[in-house]
Nucleic acid binder design. Structure first.
Lengths: 133, 133
DNA sequence: ACTTTACCCTCCCCCTACTGGAAGGTTTAG
DNA sequence: CTAAACCTTCCAGTAGGGGGAGGGTAAAGT
């Protein structure tokens, strides 16, 4: 299966697949004409990568995940720990975005939003003192 | 005020301040020895940038914000619209992170997390079919 | 006066995770 | 036989900076 077909099968852009090969996350065979040739294991690998990326794993975390997947004597505990680390960082991001949302909402509610130049948002952002707004 | 002092006053790293000058977000004077010299308006500008970045504005959005701030005949409506766009993208990010959190939580709960190699997380990620997990 | 330390300057490369495009070879459809 | 649709490698760019080289200055200690 050449790269275009692999792309359609996995949903990953062609460029991305080449990039993953570059950084050693997948190793397709090569046909005689130099074209990449993806077999079932490589397609499975790309699917794993696509899924892991979708749930927020970085490429380095994907690399660890792959190492575990390839290791038949792995402990599911290690996979779980990887996922839990990720869950924690997702939760942290959510928390800080929610704080952001609150601050933005507060600022917006104080701005008249009319033709006048006076703006509570600009004031709230430039005033270093009353950063409570 | 030279750049080190400006950094302490605004909380922005020295490198960041230089970068902001590079891309035209702040224009400090220069002393005779070539050192940057930040006056009160430049410090205020840096504070605005620091605050705007903290509430999630991109540097391009900061540029728009600055254009509005500098325009005495601005409408607070325009500032408000900028902030609202930002609020929307923050909310979208929160929503997708929450979806992620749900999926991760579901996967993790199915993994035994013991010494055995069998892992519901690996299964859930590699199995293209039952992506519901 | 001299030295050390703490600044400051510019310039270039590095990061993540890709994306776009140029220049060129290959294969397939009409 | 040609044109479209593939494929290849390589180079450059994105956001928002960080690290460090190489070199000039300034302030403080001795």
């Amino acid at each position: 299966m050449n790269i275009g077909h692999a792309s359609k099968r996995t949903g990953l852009p062609v460029k991305t697949i080449r990039y993953y090969e570059d950084i050693g996350l997948v190793a397709p065979d090569r046909a005689e004409n130099g074209y990449r040739d993806f077999g079932a294991p490589q397609i499975a690998r790309l699917n794993l990568l696509a899924q892991a990326r979708m749930i927020g794993f970085t490429l380095e975390e994907c690399r660890s995940l792959i190492a575990l997947e390839e290791n038949p004597s792995r402990h599911s505990r290690d996979v779980r720990r990887l996922a839990e680390q990720n869950l924690n960082s997702v939760r942290e991001k959510i928390a800080s975005l929610q704080a952001l949302e609150a601050r933005l909402t507060g600022l917006i509610s104080q701005c008249h939003g009319d033709e006048a130049p006076d703006c509570a948002i600009l004031d709230g952002l430039s005033d270093t003192a009353k950063r409570t707004a």
